[in-house]
Design a protein around this nucleic acid. Structure first.
Lengths: 242, 242
DNA sequence: AAGTGGTCTAGACCACGCC
DNA sequence: GCGTGGTCTAGACCACTTT
């Protein structure tokens, strides 16, 4: 690894710049693997801790990501996510020339906690369907989601094919239509469970997207919590005012 | 600092847990200052690097923040931001019982770059107004923004009072009304300029919120780039479907 | 088995905020 | 001027992935 003019690669921001320069020059393509930390070290004369500080910096900026104990890789371009669109993850990822995949991790019936009961307007302890899914772009896991549905609106939902768009299933099989959405987005850290599901280190920054869908009668159709990798996503919304 | 039952405070996740427990128990209120790194060290027997790893973890999670070379502090609750609401930052921060402040950093006239010209539909090199502002919640800087406006829509804009809602000024003084918004949100790292304006360390995670406002004729009214602290913000949107 | 990242230690010096 | 965080060094051992 050579350096741009006169950068001080003994400091972590200098090391950062020299690696960033290689990525931006196109020497390293998307998902390319970086040299090992010890190799980067010998290229710069810095201690390994310094090299790692530079790599953490680039990770926070979304330029690189890591696979546990395997190595550091160049991040691909983020995909654009429009929470107001309804054709679903699978089709808009495809529309951007990327390869989507959804994996159903599991389903179960749960008793509503106080918070869930409040959202659905049911009694605490009422039964709800719970779905956990993991979604991929180009074989990289980018989000895990937990979805809750009221069985009274969609009895027998768990017997259907849930590897695609849930909203489509609800519409087609149960004539349940979404009229309104409440969407929350909040930067967060990926904690134990989400991080494990995404196979990243716990504590990596992420984005929590929460969606509550209502039908025309104001009933809650679907409550969805999506934990995204922070570097996989760009949210874009077009909103009419008034 | 005592510990929850049996946590291993020699490891950074153990140190993290013991500090997090103190915050969540309410021992430390909002904006309270944590003990110094060297004090935390002696309380746990860990090396200072380990203590710092724990603090970085908590920072990524949004529980604490730092003031350069001053110390670590407990993060206050995030404010809720609704990009579809038009009464402006000042009033919705107040509505949440917090104390907002806007500071005009500077204004100027700039020549449109290729990207800006494309957004506004003008020739490259055309003149645009540029405003830079910094906004606070409870005297903590939470965002810096750069706003561009086409002078043909609002001649003499820079002579008005720009410490409040720009949209109000445009509506009141120029009868320019927003009919549509395109809003983009993307996790990012706060780079040099933004980090300096927010007085945080360069590289801290943030959220870039970009808004393009259009009037009923489809003309660009306002182009706004907001760089937010990642722990200051929760985006919440209510959207009608169909 | 070899190599990788993940973690940790125990020092050190500096620039800067605060008093 | 003292204490703080910011940065850096030069080791070490472990758990895991990869070959």
């Amino acid at each position: 690894m050579d350096l741009p003019d006169g950068a001080d690669t003994r400091h972590y921001l200098g090391v950062r710049d020299s690696i960033a320069a290689h990525i931006e020059n196109g020497d390293l393509g998307h998902n390319a693997c970086l040299p090992s930390e010890r190799q980067l070290q010998s290229g710069t004369g810095a201690a390994r801790g310094t090299v790692r500080a530079a790599l953490f910096q680039l990770e926070a900026e979304g330029l690189i990501y890591r696979k546990e104990r395997s190595g550091w890789y160049v991040s691909p371009a983020p995909i654009v996510y429009d929470p107001t669109r309804w054709e679903g993850f699978m089709s808009y990822v495809k529309a951007q020339g990327r390869d989507p995949k959804t994996e159903l991790l599991g389903t179960c019936e749960v008793q509503a906690t106080a918070a869930l009961a409040d959202i659905f307007g049911v009694d605490a302890g009422a039964t709800l369907y719970e779905l956990r899914r993991r979604r991929y772009v180009d074989d990289r896991a980018v989000l895990v989601e937990t979805i809750y549905v009221d069985p009274r609106l969609a009895p027998g939902l768990l017997d259907h094919d849930l590897d695609g768009s849930l909203t489509q299933v609800l519409k087609r099989e149960y004539v349940v239509d979404v009229a309104r959405n409440r969407i929350d987005m909040q930067p967060c850290a990926l904690t134990q469970a989400e991080a494990a599901a995404l196979r990243v280190k716990s504590g990596l920054p992420g984005l929590l997207v929460t969606r509550i869908s209502y039908d025309a009668q104001g009933r809650v159709v679907e409550y969805d919590q999506e934990y995204w990798r922070h570097d996989a996503l760009k949210v874009s919304v077009d909103i009419r005012v008034g």
